[in-house]
Simulated assay, not measured.
Amino acid sequence: MGDYKARFITEYRELDDRCNKLMVMLGKYSDGTLYFTPDCPIEMLNDQLEAMLKYKDILEDRALIEDIDLSPDDDKTDARALSDNGSAPAVVAALRNEIRSLKRKVEQMQEAVIAAQSAANAALSAVHDQCTNIVVAPPAAPQPRPWGVTC
């Protein structure tokens, strides 16, 4: 494994640990069981957690693209235990992968909808431009007949 992959995995695991600790703290705060009062507003901590989770999602997507296995070594053991006694960590890992896959599909669908809306708006604009440029000419006035010509 390359050095960057090891650093990547370390960064991901540290971020995951910090996210989990912050989630626990916020959960205790909302339950009223936190033994201290945070100095900063709780909304700021919620925003921090949201940003951390977004970054974690980005790292997970990169790991899929770069073929980096982020599962801890003990998850592999738990996956074997799943078939024996129904261990939950392997199921959670599989669900996380499925959620990431579904998120990517939703993003692709959103991009397709935006592209379709843009194309429809362009077509509508073109039709509108054509309609506003139509000039209806008044009927031509009858031409005077030369003298001596009869119909």
Rank of each mutant, 00 (worst) to 15 (best):
A116Y: 01
S125N: 07
A119G: 04
A116P: 02
V113A: 00
V106S: 03
L124S: 14
A119I: 05
S125Q: 14
D129P: 11
E111D: 14
C131H: 14
D129L: 08
V127H: 15
E111I: 03
I114Q: 01
V113D: 00
S118Q: 09
S125Y: 12
A120L: 03
M109N: 11
S118I: 01
H128W: 10
A116C: 03
V113P: 00
I114P: 00
D129C: 13
A115E: 04
Q110Y: 02
A123T: 12
H128K: 15
A123R: 05
A120R: 04
C131Y: 15
V127N: 15
K105M: 09
N121A: 15
A116W: 02
C131W: 11
N121K: 07
A119S: 06
V106H: 04
Q108M: 08
T132A: 05
A112F: 08
A123Q: 10
A119D: 05
A126I: 00
Q108S: 04
R104F: 10
E107W: 02
A126M: 09
I114R: 01
A120H: 05
E111V: 06
Q117P: 06
S118V: 02
H128M: 07
A126D: 08
R104G: 07
E107Q: 13
T132V: 05
A112G: 01
A126F: 13
S118C: 01
Q110T: 04
L124Y: 11
R104C: 08
V113H: 00
E111F: 00
Q130G: 15
E107M: 08
E111H: 07
T132Y: 09
Q130L: 12
H128A: 07
A122T: 11
A120C: 12
Q108Y: 14
T132M: 10
I114A: 06
E107R: 02
C131S: 12
A116N: 05
K105V: 03
V113W: 00
S125D: 06
Q110L: 01
N121F: 13
K105Y: 11
Q117K: 04
